[in-house]
Amino acid sequence: MVGMSEPCIGVLALQGAFREHRRALERCGARTVEVRRADQLNQIAGLVIPGGESTTIGKLLADWNLLEPLRERSRGGMPVYGSCAGLILLCTDIENSDQPRLGLLDATVRRNAFGRQRDSFEADLPLPEVGTEPFHAVFIRAPVLLRTGPDVRVLADVDGRPVAVRQGTLLATSFHPELTEDLRLHDYFLDMVRETPTRGQPS
């Protein structure tokens, strides 16, 4: 039974693996709602931007006037977690691209950094922020960060390139915890939401 006091987490549902994120969050005890329009941002205390195609999701964010309202909520303290495409959309700089983005995470990202689908891989990754057991990380046409700003804390890397980071109330991973049974990153994000004084709700 999910209590009403649990924060409601929005999962951006324009395109991509939003169903898997909802399932993972709900298994952690959160209430979730799919977000497709700006007015739906008012009911949520945190937002997950799923994996998918970053150009597709970025264009839909721009076309449906979600970019600015989302930036406002994030700057107002609402925690946001982006995985894969979500990480790309959070970054201020995207290598070789002028695609629409939120530009909240002070970092430069390289898309498809490991290559094409045949280069996609799974690996056990040390991620001390969520525990001593390594995290089984699924990288699908995944990005890496080439540069991170001074306020960005690197939580995990592959060959020295950041693949999990946190900057204040922003969390981003270039892999897909929603495709595994490991709920630690979703739990970690829910803790970030619970620790936000206003719970990120608009005043």
Binding site: G52, A85, S120, F121, L179
Partner: peptide, 20 residues
């Protein structure tokens, strides 16, 4: 490090969901 697993194969399709 593993490549070409069924999870990576079905996973890419999951990322295409809701798309054209």
């Amino acid at each position: 490090m593993e490549h070409g697993t069924i999870r990576l194969k079905t996973g890419l399709a999951e990322m295409l969901k809701g798309g054209v």
